[in-house]
Simulated assay, not measured.
Amino acid sequence: MSVSYDKLWKLIIDKKINKTQLRDCSGITSATLARLSKNQGVSLEALERICRALDCEIGDIVEFIEDKVILDE
């Protein structure tokens, strides 16, 4: 399974803030923001900070994507 933060990027657009403002208001690090931008895993604490800053639930910012398995025949 892969993780996607597309919902997060849509939400900050809707709230009219940019990534730098998200970093500042949530207290996450630049490294965490970079990991989010690359759809890499981040700590639950970082996701909690973002949810508090944006007044949302975790399902509003993260989505798990099923990996496609290709079987050789």
Rank of each mutant, 00 (worst) to 15 (best):
M1T: 04
S2K: 15
S2V: 11
S2N: 15
V3W: 05
S4D: 10
Y5V: 01
Y5C: 02
D6L: 04
D6Q: 13
K7C: 08
L8A: 02
L8V: 10
L8T: 11
K10P: 04
K10M: 08
K10V: 03
K10R: 15
K10A: 09
L11T: 07
L11R: 12
I12R: 07
I12V: 13
I12A: 02
I12G: 09
I13P: 08
I13G: 03
I13N: 12
D14R: 14
D14Q: 14
K16Q: 13
I17A: 03
N18P: 09
N18W: 13
N18A: 09
K19I: 11
K19P: 08
K19T: 15
T20S: 15
Q21E: 15
Q21V: 14
Q21C: 02
Q21F: 04
Q21W: 02
L22D: 09
L22R: 05
R23A: 08
D24K: 14
C25R: 12
S26R: 02
S26M: 05
G27W: 03
G27E: 00
G27N: 00
G27A: 04
I28W: 01
S30R: 15
S30H: 09
S30G: 13
S30A: 14
S30Q: 15
A31Y: 01
A31R: 08
A31K: 07
A31S: 14
A31P: 00
T32G: 07
T32A: 11
L33C: 10
R35N: 15
R35D: 15
R35Y: 13
R35K: 15
R35M: 11
L36R: 06
L36W: 01
L36E: 03
S37F: 08
S37Y: 12
K38S: 10
N39Q: 10
Q40K: 15
S43D: 00
S43A: 06
S43T: 12
L44F: 04
L44P: 03
E45H: 09
A46V: 05
A46E: 00
A46W: 03
A46G: 06
E48R: 06
E48M: 09
E48A: 13
R49C: 08
R49H: 05
I50R: 01
C51G: 03
R52N: 13
R52E: 08
A53L: 01
A53P: 03
A53Y: 06
L54D: 05
L54R: 01
L54C: 05
L54I: 00
L54G: 05
L54S: 10
L54T: 00
C56M: 01
E57T: 06
E57V: 00
E57L: 08
G59L: 03
G59R: 01
D60T: 08
D60R: 07
I61P: 07
I61Y: 05
I61F: 04
V62A: 11
V62W: 01
V62Q: 08
F64C: 02
F64G: 08
F64Q: 05
F64D: 07
I65N: 11
D67C: 03
D67L: 05
D67Y: 00
K68S: 07
K68I: 13
V69H: 04
V69P: 02
V69I: 12
V69N: 00
L71G: 10
L71R: 14
L71V: 13
D72T: 13
D72C: 09
E73T: 10
